[in-house]
Amino acid sequence: MSGRSLALRQPWTRTGLTAWAAIAASVAAVALLVAPGRGPNLAGAFLLACVPVGAAVMCWLDSGEGVVQAGLTLVISLAATAIVSAVMIWLTAWQPRALFAFAAVGVVSGTARLVRGGRPCCALHQ
């Protein structure tokens, strides 16, 4: 069985679901941010800050627990948002729209994870 088919036939693993979450959250965040209206924009901003980067990382790491997977997705995303935002302030290069790159990271990593398939990063006995 090729890696590709394995991945596509195992989309419901924790890491597979996280990869789907990375892609879906990234697309949804961008869609909400470009949509008219303050409500959708704010929802999109929170989604962008809370999911794509963490999911992009966690889709390669299996924590063994769904809630840990979700929790670390959130924490890593928030940490990345905080660090990138602080760096923009320290460098006096304030461009919040640069956070759109998080969506690109989410889509690329999630897609790569699904295409590459089966085994998560750094598995035991690798």
Partner: peptide, 22 residues
């Protein structure tokens, strides 16, 4: 120690809504 405040400012700017709204 700005990390939380800058994150809020980013979200606020992208979301076109002041921090008081959330």
């Amino acid at each position: 120690w700005p990390a939380l405040f800058t994150a809020v400012a980013s979200i606020s700017s992208l979301g076109s809504a002041g921090p008081l709204s959330f």
